[in-house]
Amino acid sequence: MKSLNLLIIFLAELAVLGSVATWGFSLGTGWALRLLAGIGGPALMVVLWWLFGAPDAPHKVHGAIRVVFEAGWFGAGAVALALAGYAVPALALAAVVAVSKGLAVAWHQ
């Protein structure tokens, strides 16, 4: 079960990137802004994860700051999905992340 939970967390991380890309490409403005947001948004999220969230991050955060960072990072994915018009999948992503991260804390993952 613990390995499955780690897989779910990893898939949720990928879902956040896909959610931000979906939001960016769904903007109703010109193609240049859609392209910038659709590619730049996920790229920014990758950089943030690499800097602060990855297991070997150069500035890895811990404790309460980690909780705030992950809530913001995963929350941004859910909000992006909702803004793209996918409210139910956004709620599902938020629920899966909440349960999975809760289990990760309980299991010291």
Rank of each mutant, 00 (worst) to 15 (best):
L14A: 12
K2E: 11
G18Q: 08
L4F: 15
I9K: 10
W50N: 01
V79G: 05
L4S: 15
L14C: 12
W73E: 06
A57Q: 01
V20D: 03
A87M: 10
L91S: 02
A98Y: 00
F74W: 03
A92L: 11
E13I: 03
F10S: 14
L51I: 08
A76Q: 01
V105Q: 12
L14D: 04
V61K: 11
L17V: 05
V16E: 06
A78G: 11
V105G: 03
D56W: 07
Q109R: 13
W49Q: 03
W73P: 09
P55S: 04
P58M: 07
S100A: 10
L7I: 13
H62D: 06
G38Q: 08
G53Y: 13
W107F: 09
Y86S: 15
W73K: 09
A37N: 10
L6K: 15
L48Q: 00
A64R: 07
A15K: 09
P42Y: 14
A78Y: 02
G18S: 14
V99D: 09
P55A: 06
L81M: 06
A37K: 10
M1T: 15
V68E: 09
H108P: 00
E70L: 05
L83I: 06
L91Q: 05
A94K: 00
V79H: 01
A12K: 04
A32K: 08
H59I: 03
L35C: 12
G40I: 04
A90V: 00
L44E: 02
H62R: 01
T29R: 08
L35T: 15
S26R: 09
L35Y: 04
K101Q: 05
S26L: 00
L51S: 05
A80F: 10
A43E: 01
E13S: 10
S3M: 15
V96M: 06
F69N: 03
W50Y: 12
G28E: 13
G38F: 13
V105R: 08
A54W: 07
A92V: 15
F10G: 14
A32R: 15
R34L: 05
L91F: 13
L17S: 05
I8A: 11
F69H: 10
R66K: 11
L35F: 14
A106C: 01
L33E: 08
E70G: 01
E13Y: 01
H59D: 13
A54N: 06
R66G: 08
L83N: 12
R66L: 09
A106L: 13
Y86W: 07
Q109G: 02
D56N: 15
P55R: 04
F69W: 09
G75K: 02
M1V: 06
V47K: 14
G41D: 07
M1L: 10
K101G: 00
A43K: 11
P89K: 11
A32V: 12
A43R: 15
A64I: 14
A71G: 07
G38P: 00
A82M: 06
L27C: 11
W23F: 15
V97G: 12
A43I: 14
A95C: 00
A32T: 02
